[in-house]
């Protein structure tokens, strides 16, 4: 029950913050993506198919509120959540520094999938060097966000280091 309520709260907060505060904290015209960071953090913290559901619901809500085609962002976020779930067992015992690395990779891949998705639905103009450059900067920004977001996710979902494979000690 706590997990379900927590996920709704996290998803709602991520979308609302992404549409209000985050654009005002842009660096060099590049806006971070709190929704992506939260999807990666939930996938690391929670594991299991619930994280993919979280990606779908949050992504779809954000898509519907944006001006781009609905569903493309949700699909790309879902793909990233599944990838993080896939690599999650290998994160065990590596160390906390792995979280920003996963955040960077997840953000870049979600953006890449999104651009490919847009191209497939007829918006190929977005697939450009400029977009990829923006994506690279965004990934760095999101990577920095992932660790603090993960700590918030763990607190909200009531997860601790026993559940989350990011500690330096094998669990």
């Amino acid at each position: 029950m706590r997990t379900t309520v927590g996920l709704w709260f996290l998803g709602f907060s991520a979308v609302a913050l992404q549409r209000s505060l985050v654009p005002q904290l842009a660096i060099g015209g590049v806006t971070a993506d709190l929704v992506v960071a939260s999807v990666v953090a939930v996938a690391i913290a929670l594991g299991g198919i619930s994280a993919a559901w979280y990606a779908i619901c949050t992504g779809l809500a954000f898509d519907l509120l944006s001006l781009r085609p609905a569903g493309v962002g949700a699909l790309s976020l879902c793909a990233v959540a599944l990838l993080v779930l896939w690599v999650r067992p290998t994160l065990r015992g590596i160390g906390i520094w792995v979280v920003p690395v996963v955040g960077i990779a997840g953000s870049f891949l979600s953006g890449l999938f999104y651009l490919i998705g847009l191209a497939l639905v007829g918006e190929e103009a977005f697939f450009s060097i400029d977009s990829l450059t923006t994506l690279a900067w965004r990934s760095l920004y999101d990577g920095m966000l992932t660790l603090p977001v993960l700590l918030v996710v763990m607190a909200v979902l009531g997860r601790n280091e026993r559940h989350v494979p990011i500690g330096s000690k094998p669990l």
Binding site: Q18, R19, S20, P23, Q24, T31, D33, L65, R68, R138
Partner: peptide, 14 residues
């Protein structure tokens, strides 16, 4: 104008 584009792939304002 209370907010800029929420995403890097749209150019809008709220």
């Amino acid at each position: 104008v209370v907010a800029g584009s929420p995403s890097n792939f749209e150019t809008s304002v709220i």
